[in-house]
């Protein structure tokens, strides 16, 4: 009787161990694929914006849909840096024969507002556009790891940065 009980326990542990390893490996691969997809889609999206000189509603929505296909939720932080040259005047309005340079930064809230209102957000040649994407939820791999081996996973394990100079302008 004891031997039968021992056999069942041993068999259960053996099967559980084998399945755990397979599950850990599979979900880890899924996370890696999700990271690759996020990298690839972000690169394609940013390059498309940099080449065209604008971001349309369709471009943005297609990008978001591609990210969602990985099964995770993401924070998308977009930054548009526009270099401006502003003349320097004294307090009494006399031009001081000098100018200052400054970056005017526009972030995703304002970019999205313009996209939703006008259908398009335009950039100037030489501006900078960059995107940071990070996962908001604990990924499937993270959940399985915390369940099976007790390693706590945080959100944001899938993260990517990508950006550069705007190459063309939309006319």
């Amino acid at each position: 009787m004891t031997d039968i009980f021992g056999r069942i326990v041993s068999l259960t542990i053996a099967v559980f161990s084998a399945l755990s390893i397979i599950l850990l490996t599979m979900t880890s691969i899924m996370d890696n694929i999700a990271q690759d997809v996020v990298d690839l889609r972000t690169n394609q999206f940013v390059d498309s914006v940099r080449t065209n000189g604008y971001m349309s509603q369709e471009m943005y929505l297609a990008y978001v849909n591609q990210l969602q296909a990985t099964g995770n939720l993401y924070d998308i932080e977009m930054t548009h840096e526009h270099l401006t040259f502003v003349p320097v005047y004294s307090d009494d309005g006399v031009f001081l024969n000098d100018y200052q340079t400054a970056y005017e930064n526009t972030y995703e809230a304002d970019i999205m507002e313009e996209i939703m209102a006008d259908g398009m957000y335009e950039f100037s040649k030489g501006d900078y556009f960059y995107v940071k994407v990070s996962s908001k939820n604990v990924t499937i791999g993270g959940r399985v790891r915390s369940l099976l081996i007790g390693v706590l996973s945080k959100a944001g394990t899938i993260t990517t940065y990508y950006g550069g100079v705007i190459r063309n302008e939309f006319f």
Partner: peptide, 19 residues
């Protein structure tokens, strides 16, 4: 030739075309 040249003449950037 450049936005910097214009600013050096005392001109401000246009708020419409954001040069």
């Amino acid at each position: 030739e450049s936005a910097a040249d214009c600013a050096a003449q005392g001109a401000y950037p246009c708020s419409d075309c954001h040069p």
